[in-house]
Amino acid sequence: VIDSLEESFRIGREVGVPVVISHHKLVGQANYGRSEETLSFIEKNMAKQPICLDCYPYTAGSTILSADRAATATRVIVSWSKALPEYAGQDLADIAQKMGVSQDEAVQRLLPAGAIYFRMDEADVQRILKFDQTMIGSDGLPHDSAPHPRLWGSFARVLGHYGRLLGLFPLETAVHKMTGLTAKNFGLKDRGVLKEGAYADLTLFNADTVDEVATYEKPIAPARGIDTVIVNGAVVWRDGRSTGARPGRVLARETQETEN
């Protein structure tokens, strides 16, 4: 992982562009605990060149199903399968047992397919999330039959589970990691801040109840505690449902502001 970071930083310096580590994580039991080392290395290099990083709040990732990845995971959930769609949402170990074959053979029968891999340590996830310069990021595959819950739960999970319940950081810090810090790192002028004249991108939520509802078993579920969502001044979510408004727009990076 250090070699990977060194290579990325070198490319950034030579090409003259900012480096974004997305998403920062330590995969595999041999790397558990190494976030202390990587965060120290990242922080040291941040003083020399533009570097930022994000993290999503789960110990599992999701991508294409493969035997190699499955072999290094403590648990694998099949998120979709074109060959055998009825197995979506089930553990690979259970699928192999039902088929009466090895895990590798089960993978071959399921392909092409996607999977959720449990390959990270919770202590590393928390340490990376808590790091001052870590943005909260997520991605997701909305067309998966049984997607990773990060698609529906990431930001509410940070506010509720990691912020309010575990006390990893104050509410204001959690919000900043999702908004102002991201806008600053990507040079998005008048975004991620609450002030007169800025774009009205706002989420109204109950700080005492906001949390994820999506789970690995039931990954498609709106977060709780979210009252209203406003994008570019237009209400897009209210009363537990979408308003149908689509005021979003492509955002251009303000190069000069980022360099300053």
Score class of each variant (00 low, 15 high):
58 Y>C: 00
183 A>E: 08
64 I>F: 08
68 D>T: 11
103 Q>T: 14
179 T>N: 13
92 L>H: 04
98 K>V: 03
103 Q>I: 14
219 P>H: 09
121 D>L: 04
203 T>Y: 10
102 S>H: 04
78 V>N: 07
1 V>P: 08
11 I>L: 15
72 T>N: 09
244 G>P: 10
173 T>Q: 03
158 V>P: 01
253 R>D: 07
147 P>A: 12
56 Y>I: 07
57 P>C: 09
224 R>K: 15
50 P>F: 10
32 Y>I: 03
165 L>I: 12
38 T>S: 09
207 A>W: 04
84 L>Y: 01
154 S>T: 13
68 D>S: 13
103 Q>A: 04
216 Y>K: 07
188 L>V: 06
158 V>S: 04
218 K>M: 12
254 E>W: 06
208 D>Y: 12
157 R>D: 10
177 K>R: 12
48 K>H: 08
69 R>D: 07
169 F>V: 01
198 A>V: 13
175 V>Q: 02
109 R>N: 11
203 T>M: 14
51 I>F: 05
57 P>K: 01
148 H>D: 13
238 R>V: 03
98 K>F: 02
198 A>F: 15
252 A>G: 00
78 V>R: 01
7 E>V: 02
168 L>T: 03
70 A>S: 14
102 S>E: 04
33 G>F: 08
176 H>W: 15
194 L>H: 11
45 N>L: 11
88 A>Q: 00
61 G>I: 00
248 G>K: 00
218 K>H: 13
239 D>V: 08
208 D>C: 11
108 Q>C: 01
63 T>R: 07
18 P>S: 07
62 S>M: 06
133 Q>D: 06
178 M>A: 07
84 L>T: 09
174 A>R: 06
51 I>A: 07
196 E>M: 13
221 A>C: 06
80 W>L: 03
212 E>H: 11
52 C>S: 15
59 T>P: 04
41 F>T: 06
238 R>A: 13
233 G>C: 02
124 D>G: 03
255 T>L: 11
173 T>L: 01
249 R>M: 11
192 G>S: 14
133 Q>Y: 09
121 D>C: 05
160 G>E: 03
113 A>S: 14
119 R>Q: 10
183 A>I: 05
16 G>Q: 10
243 T>F: 10
50 P>M: 09
54 D>M: 04
116 I>S: 02
73 A>P: 07
157 R>E: 00
253 R>F: 11
106 A>Q: 04
205 F>Y: 12
207 A>Q: 13
87 Y>G: 00
195 K>L: 12
65 L>P: 00
103 Q>C: 02
224 R>S: 05
255 T>W: 04
51 I>L: 12
39 L>A: 01
25 K>C: 14
117 Y>P: 02
65 L>H: 05
215 T>I: 12
156 A>C: 03
249 R>A: 13
245 A>W: 05
137 G>W: 06
188 L>R: 12
216 Y>I: 01
77 I>Q: 02
155 F>W: 04
211 D>W: 13
26 L>V: 06
252 A>E: 15
44 K>P: 04
143 H>E: 08
162 Y>P: 02
121 D>M: 03
166 L>E: 13
142 P>A: 12
224 R>F: 08
200 A>M: 14
27 V>A: 15
81 S>R: 00
140 G>A: 13
36 E>L: 12
137 G>M: 02
60 A>N: 07
31 N>T: 03
57 P>V: 08
